[in-house]
Design a protein around this nucleic acid. Structure first.
Length: 677
RNA sequence: GCACCCAUAGCUCAGUUGGAUAGAGCGUUUGACUUCGAAUCAAAAGGCCGGAGGUUCGAGUCCUCCUGGGUGCACCA
């Protein structure tokens, strides 16, 4: 049984009782965890709300405590509820029958695992890195938030499709192509040869990272603060045009560059356990005429109109009344430029409509990459659907009920326009169907800049953080950071476990590195700017992923030892809790054990809150608190040495349940538990 | 100019839909390895929740104003 079920049962009983006694329907009922164990396992401040509503309805003033007393008897008849107390100004505090609930919670579940009835498809787009350079730590925050959100949704029983948008025909790709063609004077063959010759630790995407910053200088004739040279910008415009057009040598070259970058970004993400179902490419949005269809729909619905005079003459614009126009800033958003080309916003509206299954067109697909466990990542293509791998059946892509776009908060304005544009075309799904899952950027702490050898102005030094910049090459590459984490972890593992094989040591170090990085990025809530600091990110102690992993590893080692000692769990304690169990769970010592169990039982609640609020930090904090509570328990109780058999059996039950919940929580965070560490 | 975000311990951050005595990590000080592993545990110190009003049984949380920071507001993406 899950604690959440019991909690919901109590809630509905309270709702019934309130209706019966006061003829009041409570639409939402808050359940809280009391601040101290002595105050019970669950608290309901419902009497305050009822007092307010009663006063409004009848004018009658009733003290909350009296109301709570009236509700109390009904709750006491619920199974697993031992007693109910009215406390404070009118709290209803529920106490569970500990021994009975313990056996119910830890009993092996036989039923169906995820009984989700809602089979609507949810769609999450994340990562979406411009395929012209390697991923940096800011991109990784996007991917880790997105991936963890996906895992959270899945753990809560949802069906999810993961997309990664590839802007393979954009300005940023064009920039790197300018670099290859006009700085390096390379042909496609030269680039391929270069790619093949690069060392694994500094691969093609890293090369592009450096080249991209050189292009920035190239446009400014070598002076980063200087004006851009119009002649050189013309090169970019020409290349961009050729890429958009397709079917020419420049487009072919650009496709090679973009695809190689995508492959290596996917390699980086694979290191962190992050995968995708579909890579949706902008080239197909163009060539399969998604925009034309969206344009037609927008015109039909009157979402956009043609401007025949004024500053935006010749453009198709979308009115955007919530922002007032000024001399500098237009209140209307241009969707089609006066030269007839479509803006990014327009393309994104088309893509968004497709995602929601409302465009009336579809991509063609081909496999991009498959994994040992059978997972496959697909990519969009203009070629007819090719079932080149019949053993890998193609899923139905698109048609999401709700679409979540993980995009940093700097893009909240354009995202708002996209959302309104979509809602204007398909009012029946409305603005609610597109969710901008925004998060703040990762910036660099002044100390981090110093460590990277970046010179700061006096002005910058006073700032709390410095924004990263791809154009200036200012940032921490994801691969470099992961390498460093792995090296640090490996040194520790070798020192602690010299007996392990080289492969085992490396795998363990890898798991620790992933745990450290993912947790570091998840412990901040989404709307908090992360000022990246090496010392903090590289830490394995305190509130970190490795701390949580360590707790689980220690728990597992108890059970490894138990097996070899043949001291298995007394199963009868589970089905028939004895009086002795009740006794061990009471008193101060019992409170401590019980509070660990209650915390472990709240995993489902924590996860559904994380999923509902799209805030993975909630689950990260929960996991850390559970690990901390377990470490305390571990320190206080010698399980194997415990002589009282009943007590030992109970301790084993609690430890077993806790490690399962902890492991499961970590899995949802994308963090694995190594054998030893 | 307009819109959005942020301000909580020395530092970095949590704080459920408005609920009981505002929490954690780091850092500092002091203790705990003959034990299921010390990447751990315990204890101490550390707070006018940026300021001022308001809403109510109750405000770190909601509303208004102010101060100080950040980010957007392209015929870029």
């Amino acid at each position: 049984m899950k604690l959440l079920e019991l909690q919901n049962r109590i809630k509905s009983t309270i709702g019934d009782a309130a209706r019966e006694a006061f003829q009041i329907d409570l639409d939402q009922l808050a359940a809280e965890v009391p601040p101290r164990t002595e105050l019970g396992d669950l608290a309901f401040p419902v009497a305050f709300e009822l007092a307010k509503q009663l006063k409004q309805k009848t004018g009658e003033k009733r003290p909350p405590r009296t109301i709570a007393e009236a509700l109390k008897p009904k709750l006491e008849s619920i199974e697993f509820v031992q007693q109910v107390e009215v406390a404070g100004a009118g709290y209803l505090n529920v106490f569970f029958d500990r021994a009975k609930l313990l056996s119910a919670l830890t009993a092996k579940s036989v039923g169906s695992p995820a009984e989700s009835i809602d089979r609507r498809k949810l769609m999450v787009e994340h990562t979406s890195i411009n395929p012209n350079k390697s991923a940096h730590i800011g991109h990784v925050r996007n991917s880790v938030i997105g991936d963890t959100f996906v895992r959270s949704l899945q753990a809560a029983g949802n069906r999810v499709e993961v997309q990664n948008y590839i802007d393979n025909t954009g300005v940023q790709v064009a920039d790197v192509v300018v670099g290859f063609m006009h700085i390096e004077n390379m042909t496609l063959d030269d680039i391929k040869k270069l790619d093949a010759s690069l060392p694994p630790e500094e691969p093609f995407d890293h090369y592009c990272w450096d080249l991209y910053t050189r292009v920035g200088l190239f446009y400014r004739d070598g002076n980063l603060d200087g004006e851009q040279n119009p002649e050189k910008l013309k090169l970019r415009a020409e290349i961009l045009h050729a890429i958009e057009e397709g079917n020419n040598p420049i487009a072919e070259l650009a496709d090679y560059v973009a695809t190689r970058n995508v492959e290596q970004i996917l390699d980086t993400m694979e290191r962190l356990g992050i995968r995708y179902d579909l890579l949706a490419r902008e080239s197909e949005i163009l060539h399969l005429h998604f925009w034309e269809r969206a344009f037609q729909l927008m015109k039909e619905r009157g979402a956009i109109h043609f401007v025949s005079e004024g500053r935006t003459r010749g453009c198709w614009v979308m009115p955007f009344e919530s922002h007032t126009g000024t001399e500098e800033h237009e209140s209307d958003k241009i969707i089609v430029r006066s030269n007839g080309t479509v803006t990014y916003t327009g393309k994104d509206i088309a893509y968004q409509l497709w995602k929601l299954g409302k465009l009336g067109l579809d991509f063609n697909y081909k496999p991009f990459r498959s994994y040992a466990d059978g997972h496959a990542t697909w990519v969009t293509t203009t070629e007819p659907n090719a079932e080149t791998q019949p053993e890998v059946p193609r899923p139905d892509f698109g048609g999401g009920a709700i679409v979540y776009n993980v995009i940093d908060s700097r893009q909240s304005y354009p995202q708002e326009i996209v959302r309104k544009g979509v809602a204007a075309v398909v009012p029946e799904v409305g603005e609610e169907a597109s969710v901008h899952l925004s998060y703040e950027m990762v910036a660099l702490s002044p100390a981090a800049c110093e460590e990277l050898g970046i010179e700061l102005s006096d002005e910058d030094r006073k700032r709390p953080y410095i924004e990263m910049s791809g154009r200036k090459g200012l940032g921490v590459k994801a691969d470099d950071l992961i390498n460093r984490l792995e090296a640090d972890a490996l040194a520790e593992v070798i020192a602690r476990h010299p007996d392990l094989t080289d492969t085992e040591q490396r795998e363990t170090a890898h798991a620790i590195a992933v745990g450290a990085l993912r947790y570091f990025l998840l412990k901040f809530t989404r709307n908090s700017v992360i000022a990246f600091d090496f010392k903090e990110a590289l830490s394995f102690e305190g509130e970190t992923g490795p701390y949580c992993q360590y707790a689980a590893v220690r728990a597992n080692s108890i059970f490894r030892k138990l097996e070899t000692a043949e001291l298995t769990v007394i199963d009868s304690e589970r089905s028939h809790p004895s009086n002795a169990a009740t006794e061990t769970l009471s008193g101060e010592a019992g409170d401590e054990i019980w509070s660990l169990l209650m915390l472990a039982a709240r995993l489902e609640e924590a996860n559904s809150q994380a999923a509902a609020s799209a805030e993975p930090a909630v689950l990260a904090k929960y996991t850390f608190n559970l690990a901390k509570a377990f470490n305390l328990f571990y320190h206080r109780h010698r399980i194997i040495a415990e002589e009282n058999e009943t007590k030992r059996a109970m301790l084993i039950n609690v430890a077993d349940y806790t490690r399962q919940q902890l492991t499961s929580a970590l899995e949802t965070l994308g963090i694995s538990v190594p054998e030893r560490m």
